[in-house]
């Protein structure tokens, strides 16, 4: 009994967040029962939310390490483009996927090297990279989209974005699986331990013999690969790629992670919070529109929710160990 109490207290942030999420859904059910009492809206959430969720997981690592990344939404588009070109060149979807993921890793590594080896703050480097990569995507593609219809009927299509039982989107499971794996990496693996200490007290980590530069470069590589993965599966799902892909995902991803309870100051992060936060932020717009409010309300409510959630997290956080 006592043990259960301790465990509950440790997860009070996540429990509170789940309650808020349940409350929001309840509110939507009351305001628009015709929409929110049917499964199709929830299946739609499972279809659209994993993209910000997967990038949110990467961003959680970046923030835990005490850094920030603004370039991932551009990386999403870049990796989708690289994937399309590689498939065109080689005819192999596998090569396309690997190429796309590698391009994300390379951009992540570049971010990390600029930040740690040249010493430019991450907000500046990744701001530059955000524009640079988006510009590169537009230049390379000539502003034109690409079709991914070659995927129809291939095994990769069903594995990554197929519909299980004809309805349940496979990439919702990929998001769940990645969340579980990355939770273990962050909280139960040596690397995650070094990420948390790099973000908490960089000097201390260095004094205890941890190569903080390398830890953070790896974190940016992880972020790049996850953004690339999101870009590839988004192209796969819609069977097309377009150069403005990912625009509009930047701030919603940040909102998910902050509402989830990850700190901006480094050393404190929650994967479970990001997971719930993504669903919470991702579900708002549809609910607001279904309730008959204008789309203008969406941003207002995002803002309100972020401020309330982050205030609660900050008050609750005092005295909690990871």
């Amino acid at each position: 009994m006592l043990k259960a109490n301790i465990d509950l207290r440790k997860y009070k942030m996540q429990i509170g967040l789940t309650l808020i999420f349940a409350l929001v859904i309840l509110l939507f059910i009351i305001t628009s029962p015709e929409v929110f009492l049917r499964p199709s809206i929830y299946l739609a959430y499972l279809t659209t939310i994993p993209f910000i969720g997967i990038m949110g997981l990467g961003l959680t690592f970046v923030l835990a390490s005490g850094e920030i990344d603004l370039s991932f939404a551009s990386v999403m588009a870049f990796a989708g483009y690289v994937c399309a070109v590689m498939v065109d060149l080689t005819g192999s979807v596998t090569v396309g996927i690997i190429g796309g993921l590698l391009s994300g890793a390379v951009i992540g590594a570049l971010n990390g090297l600029f930040i740690r080896k040249i010493g430019i703050p991450s907000i500046v480097v990744t701001l530059g990279m955000m524009f640079l990569i988006r510009g590169a995507v537009n230049l390379l593609s000539g502003g034109l989209g690409r079709s991914f219809t070659f995927l129809i009927g291939t095994p990769w299509h069903s594995i990554l974005v197929g519909k299980i039982g004809g309805r349940f989107p496979a990439h919702a499971l990929w998001f769940l699986g990645l969340a579980v794996v990355l939770w273990f990496i962050l909280f139960r693996h040596r690397f995650g331990n070094h990420v948390l200490f790099s973000g908490d007290n960089e000097g201390a980590a260095q004094m205890m013999g941890i190569n903080v530069d390398w830890v953070k470069i790896k974190v940016f590589i992880l972020m790049g690969v996850l953004a690339a993965f999101a870009g590839i599966i988004d192209s796969f799902r819609l069977l097309k790629w377009w150069p403005t892909m990912g625009e509009g995902f930047l701030l919603t991803t940040f909102a998910s992670v902050f509402v989830g309870g990850t700190s901006m100051f480094g050393g404190e992060a929650t994967i479970l919070g990001t997971f719930i936060g993504a669903y919470l932020i991702g579900s708002l717009e549809a609910g607001i529109v279904a309730a008959g409010l204008s789309g203008f309300w969406t941003r207002f409510i995002y803002g309100f929710l972020i401020l309330v959630a982050v205030t609660i997290h900050t008050v609750l956080r005092k005295g909690r160990g990871v």
Binding site: G267, E268, G321
Partner: peptide
Amino acid sequence: EQALGIKQS
């Protein structure tokens, strides 16, 4: 400087 991460356990 103690070399501790104070947010960690």
